[in-house]
Amino acid sequence: MKRLVFILLLVFAGICCSCKNDDDGGCVGVDCLPPETQTGENTFGCLLDGEPFIPRGGVNPLDCVYQLIDGERYFNLEAAMNDAGFNEIAISITTNAKEIIENQTYSLVSEFEVGGVSGKYIFNGDIFDTDNQNSGKLTITHLDIDNQIVSGTFFFDVIDQNGELREIRDGRFDMKFTR
């Protein structure tokens, strides 16, 4: 009897140890990202070098503003998280005096010039922007000024602090913005 109990305990322990305890439910790639919605769900996700990037933790992991300042529009969407090594990582899309329009696609190059639009990869406070050699696209799929909802898709590349290419792919967001 003791032997049977011991064997059952070993089998149970083996099953428990072999079970994968994933916070993501076992999904991979784009399957881990939130669905593309247009109702102000406050969702954001993309693949960062092929791995799911979904904002979490921190003081303000997800922020979106679309403001009118001195007659010009400024859009900023930023999503942040801490990785397993406790590094702070953020992905951001920014415009400089540029109105965004539903069903329009914008090249993510540089926001430093008036009317510019850029993508940013931020690693522990260091900012790496899209440029003429490493760029991408932002498509605004829904914009509701009255209800303060903006939705879209994006992708872009940047070069990081080590000179390595960072690929941001399959990005999507559905946000309530502040003005």
Rank of each mutant, 00 (worst) to 15 (best):
R56E: 07
F53W: 02
F44R: 00
D49I: 15
P61W: 03
G71W: 12
G50M: 03
L48W: 02
Y66S: 08
L47K: 01
L48T: 01
G40H: 10
P52H: 14
P61G: 11
L47P: 05
E51T: 07
R73N: 11
N42F: 11
P61K: 13
F53G: 06
L48H: 07
T37K: 15
G71D: 10
P55K: 14
Q38S: 04
E36A: 14
I69S: 15
C46I: 11
I54M: 10
E51H: 06
T37Q: 05
E36P: 00
R56G: 00
G58D: 04
P55R: 08
V65R: 14
C64I: 01
G50W: 12
G71N: 15
L68M: 09
F53K: 04
G57H: 13
P35C: 01
E51I: 00
T39R: 13
R73C: 11
P61L: 07
F53I: 02
Y66F: 10
G40D: 05
P35Y: 05
E41N: 13
R56H: 12
L48I: 04
R56M: 06
L48C: 07
G45I: 02
D70A: 14
V65M: 09
Y66M: 06
P55T: 08
D70N: 14
N60R: 05
Y66D: 05
F44Q: 03
L47H: 09
G50Y: 12
F53S: 08
L62W: 10
I69V: 15
G71C: 07
D63P: 00
I54E: 01
C46P: 10
P35M: 01
P35G: 11
E72P: 01
P35R: 13
T39E: 13
T43E: 13
P55G: 10
F53P: 03
L68I: 06
R56D: 07
E36N: 01
P52Q: 12
Q67L: 13
Q67P: 01
E41F: 13
Q38L: 04
Q67A: 04
C64E: 04
N42I: 04
C46G: 07
D63C: 00
V65P: 03
T39K: 09
G50V: 12
P55V: 13
P61T: 08
E36K: 09
N60V: 07
R56T: 01
I69D: 05
E72W: 00
D63T: 02
F44C: 09
Y66C: 02
E41S: 11
L47C: 11
V65Q: 15
P52N: 13
Q67K: 13
T39H: 10
P55N: 09
G40S: 04
E41Y: 12
I54P: 04
N42A: 07
T43N: 11
G45R: 00
Q67G: 07
E51K: 00
G58I: 01
I54F: 06
D49S: 14
G50H: 12
P35I: 02
G40V: 02
Y66P: 04
R56Y: 04
F44I: 00
L48A: 01
E51V: 00
Y66W: 05
Q38H: 14
N60T: 03
E36Q: 08
D63E: 09
D49E: 08
T43V: 03
D63F: 05
T39I: 09
G50P: 08
L47G: 09
G71F: 10
V65N: 15
D63M: 09
